[in-house]
């Protein structure tokens, strides 16, 4: 399993599956009326074939903006990638022409969005929208594309696919629409899928169906999956590796089992303690004090320092590097951007 392989480790680990995608020191800003919003401030992560990387963060943490930069669908302007590299199969996407990127989108990587209703075209039947993938990218005839669309709908377990292929998005339920989004993303069997909050808008019973489907297709096609979410429960269910983002930076990166056992960053720790548990009836919830930072004016030093119970003087002046975390029994790579990760880990 890829869960034991760590995305950025330099030393050889077994099995050494090559990195499918590698984001290196990515910076993205947005020009706004009030100034420059620094949405992404030096993000590094990577994902291998068959691996699920969960990118966890609250609104404004930069998790979706990073994904948009990878897909090449960032709004430019006001957005701007100021530096960094995005390597896909070893090739820097940021150096490619728009035409070449378009070819990669769809066949090399695809994205699933949160809101299927607004991501689908309301005036085209789902069959036409699914078929378009094949007519545009593969040059198939409309008739063959339609047959492919039915096949795809079957694959994502939409009942009566042959009849429903001519229907329009509004005739499907929320869960079914999300399946169509998944079908569209899978159509050309890309090697990487980016799913941005794919189940946030769905009810829990439907959410479980959709996550199951996604995991199964990922296994079948051995795809890399970047799952962007704010839900610590979903992450625990499906992820191999977690990257926690705060104010446009990765603050902690770890194998999923390790992070839930013992977080190595106070922000992750606060998040884990602040969620009510289905399996426990607790007393007062721990609440991280204060608010996420304004991206126009990120605090100096560690961006989390005004909300951190452990903050010292050094946290207000020095930006903590994403340092390697080591302890006995840890086999995979783990990192934390906290000056006091040792103390945090001890609890």
């Amino acid at each position: 399993m890829a869960s034991t392989a760590s995305p950025l480790s330099k030393e050889p680990t077994a099995p050494p599956a090559p990195l499918l995608l590698e984001v290196r020191d990515l910076h993205v800003e947005f020009r706004t009326r009030d100034g420059i919003a620094k949405a992404v401030n030096g993000v590094d992560y990577g994902v291998r074939a068959g691996e699920t990387l969960a990118v966890l963060g609250e609104s404004g943490s930069g998790k979706s903006v990073t994904a948009q930069a990878i897909m090449g669908i960032l709004d430019v302007p006001p957005g701007r990638i100021t530096s960094g590299e995005i390597l896909f199969h070893g090739q820097d996407l940021l150096k490619l022409k728009e035409e070449e990127r378009r070819r990669i989108r769809g066949s090399g990587m695809a994205m699933i969005f949160q809101d299927a209703l607004s991501s689908l075209n309301p005036v085209l039947s789902v069959g036409d929208q699914l078929g378009e993938m094949f007519t545009v990218h593969r040059g198939m005839s409309r008739k063959d594309a339609r047959a492919k669309a039915v096949e795809l709908m079957d694959r994502v377990r939409i009942p009566a696919a042959r009849e429903r292929v001519t229907q329009y998005p509004h005739q499907f339920s929320g869960g079914m629409r999300q399946r169509i989004m998944i079908a569209m993303a899978m159509a050309l069997e890309p090697s990487l899928i980016i799913a941005d909050e794919p189940t946030t808008a769905l009810d829990v019973t439907v959410q479980a169906q959709v996550m199951d489907l996604l995991a199964e297709l990922q296994r079948e096609l051995n795809m890399g999956l970047i799952l962007i979410t704010h839900d610590l429960g979903v992450v625990a269910d499906v992820a191999d590796t977690i990257a926690v983002m705060y104010a446009g930076r990765i603050v902690e990166k770890a194998p999923v089992h390790e992070i839930y056992k013992a977080p190595a960053h106070p922000y992750t720790k606060g998040l884990l303690e602040s969620i009510p548990r289905l399996d426990q009836k607790g007393q007062d919830l721990y609440a991280i004090k204060g608010l996420p930072p304004n991206l126009l004016n990120i605090p100096p030093g560690c961006a989390f320092n005004p909300r951190c119970p452990m903050a010292q003087d050094i946290c207000r002046t020095d930006v903590p590097p994403l340092a390697k975390v080591t302890y006995e029994g840890l086999t995979a790579e783990r990192r934390s951007a906290c000056h006091f990760w040792k103390e945090t880990l001890r609890g």
Binding site: M211, A236, Y260
Partner: peptide
């Protein structure tokens, strides 16, 4: 169906 924040 509720995801529990416990990978174990």
């Amino acid at each position: 169906a509720v995801p529990v924040p416990d990978p174990g």
